[in-house]
Design a protein around this nucleic acid. Structure first.
Lengths: 351, 351
DNA sequence: TTGAAAGCGCTAACAG
DNA sequence: CTGTTAGCGCTTTCAA
């Protein structure tokens, strides 16, 4: 009635089972698991074999208890169902798995209570490090992690008050390029629908800078702020086009693809032709930018590159045991599709 | 030089610290943590207070080692960046967090090697249960989990060979409704672009059944299979429209939104008008269905409801310690937008 | 080269 | 009502 065969019963097989069957001590088994210490090659082989036979999987829990890593990272983003973040998440997940780590995702909804809850949860789960994406409101929570020397890196959020490693796109340049493209093509009245995020400040600065360079005036009345969603894109487009006090804009620079799509939809509903009556530029270059007709002209972030880099940076810091405070700034790229009329330049990829 | 104040130093505070400071034993502290046993109310309060003061977070690792749950679930889907799954994931995440659990996500890419790798990884991390979404090729891996009595539920995948709880949409009915809508509106030549998935078999059956009911003939030449992507939607649309041996279809039923969008793009490129020259119906009703112009007529899955249900079922099974083998079948709903012409019926939500 | 033993932070009897 | 104690599965000195 004993399970003397290699057919492990249902009970989880532990380091003790391996040790007994191999006729060695658990210390020895531990050494072969971790590839530490030295021993007779034949011993190592025997243990290895038995581990195979019994399909032994060392418990991450137990080793984490002993101060080893959990090989898990926490990913905090505003909303994983937002295409920008789901695309980022996919890259992050792949890169992490390549290095033997898994990722727990948490959508904060820009809600400080959820932020707190998730940070604490992830700490209880003893994640090896955090990736914080796009926006995080309760800075003090993050500062506390930093103070406790818990690896933390920021993606797509160049919040100056936090002194950690960051991977971002050059938001200023992105804003500048989007606006230049529009100015270059003859638009004088360009509105901007931005987000309540640090990145949007930078993009707005780029927008203003472009105006200066082109000798145009950027009107404060054209600058709106909201949160990312198609609905808000619609709403703010309508607001913009129902004002009496300023000239109607002929172009919109939306600070992300969702807002841009909302603007497209609102324009269509108003019977405006795109790009002739109104041109629209988005930001991010998510899948959404390719599914509209006409395709959305947008500023591309190198999502894949950034996702991979942020994982690499985090893992490096986890190994180093301290923040390296590196900053990586990537170039945005203007992708011209059908929502702007083009008399020139730019990467043309019309669909 | 002692940190006698409530200002916990950097070392993690443990159950011992609480016990010492409260002047009780760790057993007592453990009891208040888990709300077990009984004790003087004043004692409980005192301990609770100190836990607050020291910002004590019980280690999930340590309690998991003792056989408690890890409060983590593993989510396996083909690709988290696919809007259907990211929207599902969002719902799942929220529902799980509501009940104190977090989710580790893994994208399998329909690749059996990744499937194996992730299942093993999640086991090492001792997840309390698995949610397997949409498609999973190596059935034996799942069967092994089931045999080991590890909670496992399936979402959107009514694979008959696995006897576990399932939450799915009624794929047959969805296929039937999509096709009926087209037949009812006068189409006789309706092609279908399906996936290599069990759900697609069912949708194809519905497609055939609708033909029978309407006294139409469903031609095998109109049935294509591929994997979900915009590119494949385009590709198969082109294939369909370059055949000489059958009449050109006047309508396409694509088994998911991505394929449908590819078809829309291909149609536009060919200069075909939608819905007049060709009508298109999708499946899923993801965000993609709302961003195209015209909006995509599609079969909606109740993503939120299903996501919540699958979590509830899994958690119930985790608590029960065994599979309940429940099946939940949800009604799909036809959402009529602009890619089909309507002479009648259906939920109209044109944009 | 190997193993005995002392924990990691927590839970769960079992005594007191 | 409360504390003592024996582990959970693993890592890591330190001796042998």
């Amino acid at each position: 009635m004993e399970n003397s065969k290699s057919e492990a019963k249902s009970m989880k097989v532990t380091i003790y089972d391996i040790a007994k069957k191999a006729g060695v001590s658990i210390a020895t088994v531990s050494k072969v698991i971790n590839n530490t210490g030295s021993m007779r090659e034949s011993t190592r082989q025997r243990v290895l074999e038995i581990m195979q036979q019994l399909n032994y999987q060392p418990s991450v829990m137990a080793s984490a208890l002993m101060g080893k890593k959990t090989e898990t990272i926490g990913l905090l983003v505003p909303d994983i169902s937002n295409p920008l973040f789901s695309e980022m998440a996919r890259t992050i997940e792949d890169r992490a798995h390549d290095q033997g780590m898994s990722v727990i995702m948490c959508s904060t909804d820009d809600n400080p209570e959820k932020e707190k809850k998730y940070v604490e949860l992830l700490q209880r789960k003893q994640v090896d490090g955090f990736i914080v994406g796009a926006s995080f409101h309760d800075k003090s929570l993050l500062q506390e992690l930093i103070d406790n020397n818990i690896p933390l890196v920021m993606l797509t959020q160049d919040e100056p008050s936090l002194d950690v490693s960051k991977v971002t796109v050059d938001d200023f340049k992105g804003g500048y390029e989007a606006t230049s493209h529009l100015l270059f093509n003859g638009h004088q009245n360009i509105a901007i629908i931005a987000e309540y995020a640090y990145s949007s400040n930078l993009r707005i600065n780029g927008y203003r800078a472009a105006h200066e360079v082109y000798g145009a005036v950027s009107k404060e009345e054209y600058i709106y702020r909201t949160t990312a969603s198609i609905l808000n894109g619609k709403k703010y487009f309508d607001k913009l086009f129902s004002r009496q006090d300023v000239e109607l804009p002929t172009a919109i620079f939306a600070c992300n693809d969702q807002l841009a799509i909302g603007a497209i939809q609102a324009a269509k509903e108003k019977g405006l032709q795109i790009p002739n009556d109104v041109s629209i530029v988005g930001f991010d270059d998510t899948i959404l930018a390719t599914t509209t007709v006409p395709g959305l002209t947008t500023i591309a972030q190198p999502i894949k590159t950034m996702g991979e880099k942020i994982v690499d940076v985090l893992i490096k810091e986890i190994k180093a045991g301290k923040s390296l405070k590196e900053r990586f700034l990537y170039n945005p790229e203007l992708i011209v599709r059908g929502t702007t009329n083009v008399f020139n330049e730019g990467t043309v990829d019309k669909q």
